[in-house]
């Protein structure tokens, strides 16, 4: 079974995206570090079944704490065919540093700009097409808690798998 790994900084809503994709429940809270272990679930996209892996938050590929190491070792050891880099759309500049690292490492990344409702509330607008072109990867806007953008994300995953896996 092909694998989809969800990575990103703490408290950007990785587990909400995981719950949305798999329909199972991983604990979700409003503080960093709720997920300290790896959660696995299954989801079906475009008729194919995938294993979805929710990882503890990490700030970069250079880990500081124990639980950050867990995420990296999954990327290294399990070679997922899609990596969803979930970021907080409000803090794009800081979040993109890790996207760049993932791309340097040659990872098959889809960028997920989550919590987009809060970004809009702050008056932030992001040109999605331009961002996708700049990074040369697919990018999606989502609001995990309402499920907005999840269908587009599934579509991007399907497309991505057809082209590269």
């Amino acid at each position: 079974m092909r694998k989809i790994a969800i990575v990103g900084s703490p408290n950007v809503g990785k587990s909400v995206i995981f719950n949305n994709l798999t329909g199972t429940y991983a604990d979700v809270s409003n503080y960093p570090g709720t997920t300290v272990e790896v959660y696995r679930g299954k989801c079906k996209i475009g008729g194919e079944e995938f294993e979805v892996i929710d990882t503890p938050g990490m700030y970069s590929l250079l880990p500081i704490s124990e639980e950050e190491k867990v995420g990296r070792s999954i990327l290294l050891a399990e070679s997922p065919c899609v990596i969803l880099h979930v970021v907080d759309a409000k803090n794009l500049a800081r979040m993109l540093m890790m996207t760049l690292q993932l791309l340097e490492a040659g990872m098959p990344v889809i960028l997920v700009l989550n919590i987009f409702d809060e970004a809009e509330g702050l008056g932030i607008d992001i040109d999605l097409d331009k961002l996708a072109k700049e990074l040369n990867i697919p990018a999606v806007k989502t609001v995990g808690t309402t499920g907005a953008g999840m269908d587009i994300l599934r579509g991007k995953i399907e497309e991505h798998v057809k082209r590269f896996c």
């Binding site: 970069s60 794009l92 500049a93 760049l100 008056g123 932030i124 992001i126 040109d127 961002l131 700049e134």
Partner: peptide, 25 residues
């Protein structure tokens, strides 16, 4: 690690500035 992060930060800011616009509230 500092030099490398600084470079990445610069690139991330450049991209962000070219795709993001903020309306002051």
């Amino acid at each position: 690690s500092y030099i490398i992060s600084e470079r990445r930060q610069g690139e991330a800011s450049r991209i962000t500035n070219s795709v993001m616009s903020v309306k002051e509230k």
